[in-house]
Amino acid sequence: MPAAPGAAAEVLARVHAADGYPSRWPADPEGWLRPDGARGAWVAVEGPALLGHALLVDRAPGRGLPTDAALEVVRLFVDPAARGRGLAAALLAAAVGRAEGLGLDVDLQVVAASPAVGAYERLGWRAVRRHLASWTEADGTRPEVVRMAPPVAAAPSGAARVGGAA
């Protein structure tokens, strides 16, 4: 049984409450999870429960500093209650695999002060650039962000099923 409509937004709300991601809650969470330029979407599910989400999108003009990567992993999150099971690694591997299948480079952007930086590094992702974000936090500040590139070879892991949603 697939996850119920709205399940990703419900998980996103739990992530926002726990981690403050996204830093500004979107007026339309469902729309925020479906930006223009999507090349693929993946969810991690266990039974009927949606546990994680990731998107692969075309690089948006003016987003951060110029990069050689044509695609970007965005909207990556895992339910706080399901962390530590390799779901983020599996979601990232699925997105990287799609990019490789398209013959395109991929990267992601993360707030430099976020614990996610260390999590990505443990998965073999490496920082390639630091700069101020093109967006502002709720308090009006522009955080420093890290642009990260994937490891040379990424392999999916985790017990939950990861499937494409687009």
Rank of each mutant, 00 (worst) to 15 (best):
M1G: 15
P2Q: 12
A7P: 05
E10Q: 10
L12M: 08
R14G: 06
R14N: 03
V15K: 02
A18K: 05
D19K: 13
G20K: 06
Y21Q: 11
A27Q: 12
L33N: 00
P35D: 01
D36F: 04
R39T: 11
G40W: 00
A41Y: 10
A41E: 08
W42D: 04
P48L: 10
A49N: 09
A49Q: 13
A49R: 11
L50H: 04
L51S: 00
V57R: 05
G62C: 00
G62A: 00
R63Y: 15
R63H: 15
P66G: 00
T67S: 12
T67I: 02
D68Q: 09
V73L: 05
V74R: 01
D79N: 01
P80V: 08
R85F: 00
A88C: 04
A88W: 09
A88I: 04
A94W: 07
A94K: 02
R98S: 11
R98W: 03
D105S: 06
V106T: 03
D107R: 01
V110A: 12
V111L: 05
P115L: 08
V117N: 03
Y120N: 02
Y120L: 07
E121R: 14
W125S: 00
W125C: 01
W125R: 02
V128C: 11
V128I: 10
A133G: 04
W135C: 05
T136C: 10
G140Q: 12
R142I: 03
R147D: 15
P150K: 03
P151G: 13
A153K: 10
G158M: 04
G158Q: 02
A159L: 10
A159T: 13
